[in-house]
Structures are given as structure tokens and as C-alpha cells.
Design a protein around this nucleic acid. Structure first.
Lengths: 171, 171
DNA sequence: GGGATATTGTTTCGGCCATAACAATCTCCC
DNA sequence: GGGAGATTGTTATGGCCGAAACAATATCCC
């Protein structure tokens, strides 16, 4: 039990304790920035883990694989370099993810006529069906996660996150 | 350039496009929930990558390693099972992380007198110095990330994230 | 045209993480 | 006491990810 008499999960209990400890330290310790970063990363981690274990792993796939296929579903056949740039991740990570999906028959690599270096990644028929099936489940689960917030609160939360992302520090 | 005349990073450009596409789909497609989940995960990923590459990798460490050492710094010698529970991660992940840190001489495993199964993980002298040095840098970098928000906005953002975490779905 | 430079995708390597299976140890309860 | 069951930590195995190095190809520019 915490001072308010409510029992907290261990991660939030620790978060509150760490914040209190930091509040007693001199700068540059910043309890507010720590608490924000901690809860942001913890929520992202729990959400990723939950979607992965509840929805994608039982079907034999992964969340990163689904996210890549979802992009292909919206964008159509796309070059790995473009996927890497959209996802802000490395080209080698895209190569690896595409390899895994290709082994499962969900995507295929197609040559690009005008450029001997390039390929495009495209969903197969099986991949399209896979995205459709997982998409509906994931949307419902995301709604469950965010249900504790009212509609206006969800929109404001998104706006705050977006503002940070737009002003992201360089490098 | 997006319709407002502002140039957006590719990941936000995609996020806005995906949201528009979902808005034209029938339920259970939920453009609001998608947008919230997308921006949350994207921000967490960029923040993690930034802290890792700017602060911890140049010192020869990793962000997960630092986070574990930071917990030991606040909590003192702690059992792996407790670390796993606080971090909401698996015991094997803790074992692996402790192995890496132990190879670097940053932590050590100590036996627990009353229990032949258990060990506690403790910071070495080098580990304590490592945490102190990286902690100051990380606090400053986190402030840079969150600077686009005013103090009240940062606190409200933390409160919204905490509310979701407290009400997290079961399983 | 042709060489210097840039881009694209891949490979290798190492760290992170989960799941499942396992050995050692402890606890409960008759 | 002693055996069933729980707990603790570890070890595979496999996917994800970045950094660096590499080969193939394209582009720039004289």
C-alpha cells in the first residue's frame, strides 16, 4: 500500500519512489523529467509486450513484422530505404525484418526496373490476409488500453506527444 | 510540405497519412487510438535510441544496462527476481543484462546467506561511478527532449500516462 | 566518356528480450 | 520427517535492432 492506501503495481511503486529520491538531489537531477521519461517508456514497453504476446505471437508473427506489413498495406510496394526512413530505423533492421517475413511467405522482394540496386517489398496474398486479420484485433486492444482516458484527454495526449516529436532534438 | 506548409519528418508524415486512411475505414478501425499508439511508440523509440547512441554507447554501455544500474543505485543490492518484477520483464532478461554488466566489472553477484537459490546483484565501485557520470548527462538530455512543453503540460502528460498505467488491462 | 562520389541493400557481430525447459533449493502440510 | 509443489536463477533458441564494413549500381561533374 502506498500513502494513499491504493496498491500499485511494482513498476509504478518504484517510479514514485525514484521520483521522491531524485527530488532530494541537487540539479541536474530533474524529478519531473525523470518521471515523464520513465512512465512514457514503461507504458510503451508494456503496450508493445501486450500486443506482441496477445495478438501477434499466437499467430506466429511479431509486432515489428506487423507494423512493417501494415505500412505496406497502406503504401503499397515500397523500397527498404523508404521503410527505414519512415520508421526511423536502420536499413539493416529492415533487411532482417523482411527476411523473416519472406521466410513466412508474407512479403516478397521485387526488382525495380530502372535501378539495379533497388528492390521493392510487397505483401503477398497471404500477407494481405494476415494484416487484415491482425489489424482488427489490434485496434480493439488499443481501445482497451486507452479507455481510462476520455476522448478529449486522448486527443490532448496525442497532441502533446506530437508536439515533442515535431520539435525532436537534432542528431 | 504538408497541407499546412510545414515540412514534417517522414515518420510524422506517415503517421498523419495513416490516420487519414483509417478515418475512411469502418470500425473497428479507430484513427484516434491508432494515432495515440503510433505517436507514443514512436516517441519512446526515438528517445531510447537517442539516449543510447548519444550517452551510453560512447561510454561502452547500453541504456537497459544503465536503467538496471540506476535501480541498484537507488535500491541497493537487489535480487534478480525483484528487478524483473519492478521492470516488468523476464527473469532471463535480467540474467542476461547482469551477465553483460558483470563482464564489464560494473556489478557483482553476491550469495544470500539464508537462501541457497538466491543471489543479490550489487554495484561495484566502478558501477557506482558509472551511474553517477551517466545520470547527469541523461537528465540534461531528457530536459532537452521535453523542453517544447511547459511545466504544467509536462506534469499533465505524466499524469495521463500514469493513469493509463494504473488501469492497464489484465494479462 | 570516365573517374570520384553517393546510394542501396546485405552481411557480420554483439546486445536486448521472451519463451520454454531445467536444476537447485525452499516451503508447505500431512 | 518427508514428499508434493512453488520459487529462484540459468540455459538454450530465435527474433529484433544498430553499427560497421562491403559489393553492386547509379549519379555527378569535368
Amino acid at each position: 500500500m502506498n500513502p494513499a492506501g491504493q496498491s500499485l503495481p511494482p513498476d509504478l511503486e518504484y517510479g514514485a519512489y525514484a521520483r521522491d529520491r531524485l527530488a532530494a538531489m541537487p540539479p541536474p537531477a530533474d524529478p519531473e523529467a525523470f518521471s515523464l521519461a520513465y512512465h512514457l517508456l514503461q507504458l510503451a514497453y508494456l503496450l508493445v509486450t501486450d500486443l506482441e504476446t496477445r495478438i501477434h505471437r499466437p499467430r506466429g508473427w511479431t509486432l515489428p513484422g506487423f507494423r512493417l506489413m501494415f505500412k505496406l498495406w497502406l503504401l503499397g510496394p515500397t523500397q527498404p530505404v523508404r521503410l527505414a526512413e519512415i520508421s526511423a530505423m536502420s536499413r539493416s533492421a529492415v533487411t532482417n525484418a523482411v527476411n523473416t517475413l519472406e521466410r513466412g511467405g508474407l512479403v516478397e522482394r521485387l526488382p525495380v526496373p530502372g535501378d539495379g540496386r533497388a528492390v521493392v517489398v510487397a505483401l503477398t496474398e497471404a500477407g494481405q490476409e494476415a494484416v487484415r486479420a491482425a489489424f482488427a484485433e489490434q485496434a480493439l486492444r488499443e481501445e482497451e488500453w486507452f479507455a481510462p482516458l476520455g476522448e478529449g484527454e486522448r486527443e490532448y495526449l496525442t497532441a502533446l506527444l506530437t508536439r515533442i516529436l515535431r520539435a525532436r532534438p537534432a542528431l
